[in-house]
Structures are given as structure tokens and as C-alpha cells.
């Protein structure tokens, strides 16, 4: 089948198949979705090589064709990222799970970051190199998660928290969460220096400037690489502002949506032309893979999948960085 926008000629079954693998891995391991999306585009379907030629055959000059290809691949990544926020944000608003004052502070920085990120000059090869580093680091992290050191640490933490939970149960009466939820949030005090708000019965104090600055930096990095930024936002909100996870999930997803929408808009304004047919087949596969992942993961140890994924990511991370080529290996 010919894909008229990207110019590739590929069997849709292979695109769906790669989507299944991506969805399967993402739903099981919970990481590397964007890395696998890019590996598919670059290694399997060679969009980075074919699309510039296709665009040049239509009269575009080489530099513009390469820039359009790079931006299009980033939009493809972002289109895969933006799906969950689109569905989740209205749901979260309805359930009053978004800490709106905090989200607004971070999002004010995110908007600027996501506008600036796509403007930072980066060639197609530089993009692949830096994405290779990200892929390699995620691969290292996954490999670490399969080690006994990590597992023992995790086991210890689980035991400690179980004991604590049992004690809390004994000592504390159950809170009526639903009643608190109806209260939603209330801004108690707002100034440039300090924002104090009550969310679900608990009071939080944050610095709006720090929140906006963090959002700005995260959005620059995320939008430069065509990522949603959730993997940086969640630890940022949880560790810098010491916010509970229940609040982090609702708030971060709104910020990811803002970042992705602004970044997609910026790339489209820069001439990116997403191939809906390609990404449609890919997402059909991702849907299947995400559905199958939790069903089949019961039948084997997750550790083995992590090992395999870590190996794949380390291999492709080094490949994108040009290490194999530099060593004279034609792989």
C-alpha cells in the first residue's frame, strides 16, 4: 500500500503488527511507548529516509524536506501521546480530580515552553542522536529494574508499607472521600510568592513561579523531542511540591494535554504533515496490543519482558547515537 503523505510503500499489516508490539509493551511495562513509536518510523518503515525524497520529488528543497520529515515524525509521536489526555481530562474535571490552581501555574510555563521547544534548531540527525540518548537511558533504567538489588529494595518497601497500612486501619476511622470530593478545590490565598489552596479537604502551599518555571523547562525538552512530558511531570509534581499521587495523576494529564496540543500546533505551523493513514493503522495495532497486554502478562514473568525491552532499547539507543556505525558494524 502507498502512503501518499509520507511516501512510504508498506504492508499495513506490518504497521498494525508494530502497533500491537508497542501497545503490548506499553500496557505491560508502562514505558517506552514513544521510543518504540520512533523505532518503527525510523527502522522499520524508514520514514526518515523516504519522506525527504518523496517531498523533494514534489519540488521541496532538501533542507526543508528534512525539517518537514523530522517535524512530522514528532507529530506522529505526539499524536500517540495525546490520546489518553483527550479522553481523561473531561472525565477528571467531572470527578474534580484536577487541582486547577496548580495546573494553571504549571501550564502557564508549559505554553511558552511548548512554543519555544519546536523553534530550537535541530537537524534530523541531531534529533535521532538525542532521541538515541533518551532511548538508551530508558533501556538502562529498565535493565536496573530487573536486577535483584531493585527487586529486594521494592520488596522491603512493600513490607514496610503493609505494616503501616495495618496500623493505620486500626487507629483511624475511614474518611468519607466522596463527601470531600464534592468540595473540589478552593483557593485560600494567591500571590506571586505563594499559592495556598484546599483540595479534597487538604491544604497545599506552592510557589507559582517555581511551578511555572518547572513547566517551562519540562515543556521545552518534551516538545523538542515530540514527547508528552508526563514522565518528567509526575516526579516533578510529586517530589518538588510533595503532592499526593491521586492529585498528581489528574493534574499532570491536563498539563500533558496542554503541552501536546501547543507542540502539535507549533509543528503543524512549521509545515509538518501527519500521515493519518500510517498513524491510524499504527494506533489500531496499539489498541489491540494494549488490550492483549494485561491478559497475557499473567502467563509469564514480567521481568523477562523488561529484559527483552531493555536489550532492544539499548541496542537502538546506540544505533540512533551512531555508535554501531562508528565501530564499523553495519547493523
Amino acid at each position: 500500500m502507498d502512503f501518499i503523505i509520507s511516501g512510504i510503500h508498506a504492508n499495513p499489516i506490518w504497521i498494525v503488527f508494530w502497533g500491537i508490539i508497542t501497545g503490548y509493551v506499553f500496557s505491560t511495562v508502562g514505558a517506552a511507548g514513544a521510543c518504540l513509536t520512533l523505532i518503527g518510523q525510523v527502522t522499520l518503515f524508514k520514514i526518515d529516509k523516504i519522506m525527504p525524497q518523496h517531498l523533494m520529488s514534489q519540488g521541496m528543497d532538501q533542507a526543508a524536506a528534512k525539517a518537514t520529515t523530522k517535524n512530522t515524525m514528532k507529530v506522529h509521536n505526539l499524536m500517540a501521546v495525546i490520546l489518553s489526555p483527550i479522553i481523561a481530562v473531561p472525565k477528571y474535571f467531572k470527578e474534580k480530580r484536577v487541582a486547577i490552581p496548580l495546573a494553571l501555574c504549571v501550564a502557564s510555563g508549559v505554553v511558552f515552553g511548548a512554543l519555544i521547544g519546536p523553534q530550537i534548531p535541530m537537524s534530523l540527525s541531531a534529533y535521532k542522536f538525542w532521541f538515541g540518548i533518551i532511548t538508551f537511558v530508558i533501556g538502562l533504567r529498565l535493565a536496573y529494574e530487573t536486577t535483584n538489588v531493585y527487586r529486594q529494595k521494592k520488596q522491603k518497601l512493600t513490607e514496610v508499607s503493609k505494616n503501616f497500612e495495618a496500623r493505620v486501619k486500626e487507629m483511624k476511622q475511614t474518611k468519607n472521600w466522596d463527601a470531600l470530593a464534592t468540595e473540589g478545590f478552593k483557593v485560600d490565598n494567591f500571590s506571586i510568592k505563594e499559592l495556598t489552596f484546599t483540595f479534597w479537604g487538604q491544604q497545599f502551599t506552592i510557589s507559582p513561579v517555581v511551578a511555572a518555571l518547572g513547566g517551562f523547562c519540562i515543556a521545552i525538552i518534551a516538545s523538542m523531542f515530540g514527547l508528552g512530558g508526563g514522565f518528567m511531570l509526575v516526579p516533578y509534581l510529586a517530589s518538588v511540591f510533595v503532592l499526593p499521587m491521586f492529585m498528581v495523576s489528574g493534574t499532570s494529564i491536563l498539563i500533558v494535554l496542554v503541552n501536546s496540543v501547543v507542540a502539535i500546533g507549533s509543528y503543524l505551523a512549521k509545515g509538518a504533515t501527519p500521515d493519518f493513514m500510517y498513524i491510524g493503522f499504527f494506533l489500531a495495532g496499539v489498541a489491540g496490543g494494549s488490550y492483549l497486554g494485561p491478559i497475557f502478562s499473567k502467563y509469564y514473568k514480567e521481568k523477562y519482558l523488561r529484559w527483552l525491552l531493555a536489550a532492544v532499547l539499548l541496542f537502538y539507543g546506540l544505533r540512533f547515537m551512531g555508535v554501531w556505525k562508528a565501530l564499523g558494524l553495519g547493523i
Binding site: 501497545g23 506499553f26 500496557s27 508502562g30 490520546l83 479522553i87 496499539v286 489498541a287 494494549s290
Partner: peptide, 11 residues
């Protein structure tokens, strides 16, 4: 949670 949410969204 995100994985389940993602599956629903992508479907």
C-alpha cells in the same frame, strides 16, 4: 492506571 486509560483512549 495510565495503561488502562491509554487502551480505552486508543480504542
Amino acid at each position: 492506571y495510565f495503561a488502562a486509560l491509554y487502551c480505552e483512549a486508543v480504542i
